[in-house]
């Protein structure tokens, strides 16, 4: 390492003109919004079905949770096989469905790469959010549902008027977890694309790695790291404010 020279806010000023940094910021925001919508909706759907006490609930729950105990590097590598253009499952399925014209080099096309990555993120973490939401739903006293049913509330009405308001505090925590989690993805992106093709799938953490440990600009990388820290704190404060709800008396 060369001796440190104080440069004031120069690194931060440079960041504003760095198109790759802006691209990775955009990708991170895409991940945040995408995983918020996808995770919350899909997890709510599945946890609500599991909440209906069907046979095998415990089995489904533990199967859905399995991917999030597996290491991100292994999952990233697995999905590069699934997206592989020669023997990959995705292209194979398209061929079987007679949709061969949709076949793609999913991870080396700038237009599809972020969608390809976000699907993997969902595959890995949706089970985690299902378990959290399910635990919250099980804490709701059953008497509330009985009362709602006697009053003639449909299943959908019971969901919107009983389940949803009562699990709101947990949904807030869940949203914070999703947001801070999607700002921090490193291993999946790093293994699947390394930020490529031509920085199209770069996120803040991989770009920080690239600047700090490939081109050896430690100061610049530190600035990116601080932006990441700042964004995490902003996200936590924001989602606390948005989801703020009065305590509902039971």
């Amino acid at each position: 390492m060369s001796p440190a020279v104080f440069v004031g806010l120069k690194n931060y000023a440079n960041l504003l003109h760095d198109s790759i940094f802006l691209q990775s910021l955009k990708n991170n925001l895409f991940m945040v919004v995408g995983s918020l919508i996808a995770h919350l909706l899909l997890a709510l759907l599945l946890s609500n079905i599991l909440f209906n006490k069907l046979r095998g609930t415990k089995f489904y729950q533990s199967v859905y949770f399995l991917p999030c105990v597996i290491c991100g590097a292994a999952i990233g590598l697995t999905w590069t096989f699934i997206y592989n253009s020669e023997f990959g499952m995705v292209n194979n399925i398209l061929e079987i469905l007679k949709l061969a014209q949709l076949k793609h080099q999913w991870l080396s096309d700038e237009n599809t790469v972020m969608f390809a990555i976000i699907i993997v993120v969902m595959w890995q973490y949706v089970g985690y959010h299902i378990v959290i939401q399910l635990a919250a739903m099980r804490n709701i006293p059953t008497s509330l549902y009985e009362a709602a049913a006697i009053d003639g509330a449909s299943k959908w009405r019971q969901f919107t008027s009983v389940t949803l308001p009562l699990i709101k505090p947990v949904l807030r925590v869940d949203a914070i977890l999703i947001i801070t989690g999607s700002l921090k993805y490193f291993d999946l992106v790093f293994v699947m694309t390394g930020g490529g093709p031509s920085h199209a799938s770069e996120v803040l953490s991989t770009y920080m790695y690239y600047q700090g440990f490939r081109t050896l600009k430690y100061g610049y990388a530190s600035a990116i790291g601080n932006i990441l820290l700042f964004l995490c704190i902003v996200a936590i404060c924001l989602s606390s404010a948005v989801f703020k709800s009065k305590k509902i008396e039971e």
């Binding site: 390492m1 801070t180 700002l183 921090k184 490193f186 803040l204 953490s205 920080m208 790695y209 700090g212 440990f213 430690y218 990388a221 530190s222 790291g225 601080n226 990441l228 820290l229 995490c232 704190i233 936590i236």
Partner: peptide
């Protein structure tokens, strides 16, 4: 819990060096 590990990487690297 709130601090992302990434923000600490560069300082840690310089300390460990």
């Amino acid at each position: 819990i709130m601090i992302p590990a990434h923000a600490t990487i560069v300082p840690l690297f310089s300390m460990f060096s």
